[in-house]
Simulated scan of single mutants.
Amino acid sequence: MSSTLPPPFWPILLGVLGAVFGSFIATVAIRWPAGRSALGGRSGCDGCGRELAWFELVPVASFVVLRGRCRSCGAGIATGHVVTELLGAGVGIAAGLVAPGWEGVAGAACGWLLLALGAIDLAAFWLPDVLTGTLAVVALGGGLAGFAPSPSDRLIGGAAGFAALWLVAAGYRRVRGRIGLGGGDPKLFGAIGLWLGWRALPMVLLIASVAGLAVVAVMAVAGKKPAVTDRLPLGTLLAGAAFLCWAV
């Protein structure tokens, strides 16, 4: 493929790919934290266990046609599946619109990795090193390919992002005597720095913090508490903030 292709081609292509990747990411977010293989095995109904046919696995469309239920037992299909598929498509479309061409492909790849990390952190408060490491590699690859920011800004961002949250985690642990920040969060922030460069890190952290406060406020108004006391998935918040900063 050439970057000289018409600009409308890119959001369409990346949007379709994003929906497919979103479907895979949704499955990974369910299987991996549960200790099941993220790659092996055919998809099946969570209610009756029946193996799903190919036409039941078409992203978004299958959910709509089946009205969100298994055609055999009528069990509800997890809404998270279609939401993740839509988010994957949205990442692809946004990347294709913001940067038609290979830069958009690189941006979409980072966005999909962030979506996977955010989905897993939301489901299990876990940021797999293999995904964070892959994000770091893709981010560095973008810099070497000549996409902004420069490789030096990315390297500074990687070091600064990791160091900033590592120091926060170490300080909290020293003062409070308990862990307040997961070990994967500094690594993720470092990988984000390798993608966006050091200048974007304060804005990413600000957006993630404001989003976190908004979630707490909404839960307080609704009279609800977090699923795990005093914990919010910072990785999910950072992932969303990072892609927003890149796209905007």
Rank of each mutant, 00 (worst) to 15 (best):
D46S: 10
A34E: 15
A217H: 05
A99L: 12
S150T: 15
C45E: 06
G80L: 11
G142D: 05
L140H: 04
V65W: 14
V228T: 15
A116P: 04
A217T: 15
L140P: 02
F162H: 09
D153E: 08
F9Q: 01
G92T: 09
S2G: 14
L115F: 14
I30L: 14
A148Q: 03
F189K: 00
A89R: 03
S2N: 13
S72K: 02
K224T: 15
L86V: 14
L205Y: 12
G193S: 08
V20P: 00
A164N: 02
A241D: 08
G240R: 06
V248R: 00
R154Q: 11
A136D: 12
G212Q: 10
I192C: 09
G74H: 05
L86Q: 07
F21K: 00
L234S: 05
R176V: 13
F189N: 04
L181I: 15
R67T: 04
R36M: 06
G212E: 14
S2W: 14
V248Y: 03
V58K: 01
V65Q: 10
V20C: 13
L196R: 12
L122P: 03
G157R: 01
G101D: 13
F147D: 14
G182C: 07
W198L: 01
G80W: 10
L196V: 11
T236Y: 12
V168T: 04
T79H: 02
C245L: 12
A123C: 06
E51H: 00
L117D: 12
G35Q: 04
G49A: 09
G15W: 05
L117N: 09
G111W: 11
A75W: 06
G146L: 07
F189C: 04
G111N: 03
G76D: 08
M1R: 03
K225F: 04
V218Q: 01
F63L: 02
V137W: 14
G18L: 06
A208I: 07
P11Y: 10
R173Y: 05
A109T: 15
P8V: 13
R67H: 07
A116K: 03
